[in-house]
C-alpha cells in the first residue's frame, strides 16, 4: 500500500515535470479552465437576483453546495486523471506495458498523466467552497467539522470512482464512457441545488444510484441547519464515507472484471 502510494506520487511527479516542458501551454490551459469553471457560478447569482431563497436555501448556501461538489469533483478528477487515457491505452496496446510491470495496474494508470490544468478547477472549486463558508454563519462544532470534511472527501472518492468506471468501460467498448460525464460533470450541475428542487425520479438517481447527491445534500443540510423535508433519518448525514467506500468497492470490482476480460481477449 505504502509502496503503491510512493509509486503513484513518483508517477504524478513525472507527469508534472513532463508538462512543465510546455510551460506556456500549461499556464494558458490552467487559466482558461479557471475562467470557464468560474463562469459556472454566474447562473446562481442570476437566479438569486430574482428570488430570495430556493427551496429554503439562500444564495451563499447554494454556492456552498456548488463549491462542495465542484471542489470534490476536482479532487476526484485530478487523482484519476490518467483514466482519460484508457481508450488510447487499450487501442494502442499500451496497456500491455502496464501489465508487465510489477505494480498494480490501476496505480500505474491513475498516475501516468496527471494533467496540470486540473489545478484550474481545483482552485476554482476550493475558492467557491471557502468563500461560501466565509459568508455563512456556520457553528463549527466537532460534528459539523466532521460532516464538512467527510462530505468533501466522500464526494472526491465518488467522483474518482465515476472516472474509474468511465475508464473501465474501455474494456468492453471502443469509446471511453462519455455517458459517465452525465454523472460527473452533470453531477456537479445537479448537486449545486438542494435536491428537493428536483423531480422524485431524478432525486432517486442522484441519491441512491449515483449517490453524489446523498453525500453532499444531507451533510450540508445538517451543517447549515436546514430542515430536510424529505424526512430522511438524521444519521443519513453521517453515512457519506460509508456510501463512498461502498461505491468505490463496487467500481473496483467492475475494474477487475474488465481486467480479467482483457487478459482473456487482449483487446
Amino acid at each position: 500500500m505504502v509502496q503503491a502510494l510512493r509509486i503513484y506520487c513518483a508517477l504524478v511527479g513525472a507527469s508534472f515535470r513532463s508538462q512543465m516542458s510546455y510551460r506556456r501551454s500549461f499556464v494558458l490551459e490552467a487559466f482558461s479552465k479557471l475562467l470557464i469553471t468560474g463562469l459556472e457560478v454566474v447562473p446562481i447569482f442570476i437566479v438569486f437576483s430574482h428570488i430570495e431563497t430556493l427551496a429554503g436555501w439562500t444564495q451563499w448556501e447554494v454556492i456552498y453546495l456548488y463549491g462542495l461538489a465542484s471542489f470534490g469533483m476536482a479532487i476526484g478528477e485530478t487523482i484519476t486523471s490518467g483514466m482519460k487515457d484508457m481508450p488510447a491505452l487499450v487501442r494502442d496496446g499500451e496497456l500491455d506495458r502496464v501489465l508487465i510491470r510489477p505494480v498494480n495496474s490501476l496505480v500505474q494508470i491513475l498516475g501516468r498523466t496527471t494533467r496540470l490544468h486540473h489545478l484550474g478547477r481545483l482552485a476554482q472549486g476550493a475558492a467557491a467552497y471557502f468563500i461560501a463558508i466565509s459568508f455563512l454563519n456556520v457553528d463549527w462544532t466537532a460534528a459539523h467539522l466532521f460532516l464538512a470534511v467527510s462530505s468533501l472527501l466522500a464526494g472526491a472518492v465518488l467522483y474518482a470512482s465515476l472516472f474509474i468506471a468511465s475508464g473501465a468501460t474501455c474494456f468492453w467498448t471502443t469509446e471511453s464512457g462519455e455517458t459517465f460525464n452525465a454523472f460527473t460533470y452533470g453531477g456537479v450541475d445537479m448537486t449545486q441545488y438542494p435536491i428537493t428542487v428536483y423531480r422524485p425520479w431524478l432525486r432517486f438517481v442522484f441519491v441512491f444510484i449515483v449517490p453524489v447527491g446523498f453525500v453532499s445534500y444531507f451533510p450540508s443540510a445538517v451543517i447549515l441547519g436546514k430542515h430536510d423535508p424529505l424526512g430522511f433519518p438524521v444519521f443519513s448525514a453521517y453515512l457519506a464515507p460509508v456510501i463512498a467506500a461502498l461505491f468505490l468497492s463496487g467500481v473496483l470490482c467492475v475494474w477487475k472484471l474488465g481486467m480479467r476480460r482483457y487478459e482473456s481477449t487482449g483487446s
Binding site: S18, R97, I100
Partner: peptide, 30 residues
C-alpha cells in the same frame, strides 16, 4: 514481471518529455 524485460520497437517505455535518466529513476522505484 520482475524476471522479464521487454522492448517493443514501435513503442517506448520511456517518458517522452523527460530525459532518460528520470525514466530510469522511476523504473528503479517501480
Amino acid at each position: 514481471a520482475a524476471n522479464i524485460g521487454a522492448v517493443f520497437g514501435q513503442r517506448t517505455q520511456l517518458w517522452w518529455d523527460l530525459p532518460p535518466i528520470e525514466s530510469y529513476r522511476l523504473l528503479g522505484k517501480i
